[in-house]
Design a protein around this nucleic acid. Sequence first.
DNA 1: ACCTGAACACCGTTCAAGT
DNA 2: ACCTGAACACCGTTCAAGT
Lengths: 184, 184
Amino acid sequence: MGRPARIDRAAILDAAFELADREGLDAVSMHAVARRLNVTPMALYRHLDGKEALLDGLVERLLTEFRAPRAGQDREQWLTAMAGGIRAVARRHPAVFPLLLTRPAVTPAARGVRDAVVAALQDAGLTEAAARRAERLVSSAVLGFAASEAAGRFRQHEQAVVDEDFAELLRWLRLALTGPHHQE
Amino acid sequence: MGRPARIDRAAILDAAFELADREGLDAVSMHAVARRLNVTPMALYRHLDGKEALLDGLVERLLTEFRAPRAGQDREQWLTAMAGGIRAVARRHPAVFPLLLTRPAVTPAARGVRDAVVAALQDAGLTEAAARRAERLVSSAVLGFAASEAAGRFRQHEQAVVDEDFAELLRWLRLALTGPHHQE
DNA sequence: ACCTGAACACCGTTCAAGT
DNA sequence: ACCTGAACACCGTTCAAGT
């Protein structure tokens, strides 16, 4: 008959996320997270399935911090908000961000965010199939760019150049979403 | 006055790459690679600066396996070859591939491949600045898609659907590269 | 010059035990 | 129910030593 829990899943994810932000993803270990919570590593297993589940939790945190911009008044504006939001998350959490391209969204909260993006695209007038496809393609392109930037792949270029890169990418996507190319 | 070397950088990268392909990126450790070469872990440090340098070596291997398609007869065809080549590498080496979005190309051989892509775009008629920008954007989008696919982010969809996604992405990029959008 | 051996502070996870 | 303690097979890297 239980004693009160000293930690829970949320506290564990908080600690892990902070650790990743400050010392990098490699610093996120079961031992290190436990240390931060004044608990032994094994205490974490009561609340989380292991290291993999911990990383899935970080993906969830990234996505819920992002949140999907609500249904587009107009499609261009929605796209700008959505892409800008993703890029902002990448800049705040460069160490954690690559996980988004490495791990599918598996936790319920994580899947919810993706579903909200699809819903917004449907509200903007796409069929369900087209909305799902657009979500996959836009997220791939934007995540690819944001992850590249966060990882320092464009490090050698001036910030202004990279900002203009991003603007150009948005123009491409706008063209693709509003252009003569979403039949079927 | 040296004894003959039993291993070298190439042999180490061979072993690491094979290990990653067969058992995943997490299986690539200095200990495990050394074990595969019948050598102690410390022997690797003579030929490589450490774990980070080992991973940079894997990035180099991915890029040199890809090789840039030679200068485009026509731009569309070049784009198809280039994107298809990247996707093929991702499918052959799903475990290693994400490194491309996580680590900038730092070794000389790795940078050479990227420079060849830029050169091909210049041969196709872009200015140097435009070619560099196009390389950054196309590689971000294609790497983002290929990494997503390799990581299983589209796992729930039929192969035919994902193939059509890729075709659609290519149409977007073609539009962007040949459309009314590469002034300045 | 190239590799080994012993060592250190870590890591993920298990198992049985305490309260 | 929740957490600890001891333990295991790992990990990256250092240092001094062998040939």
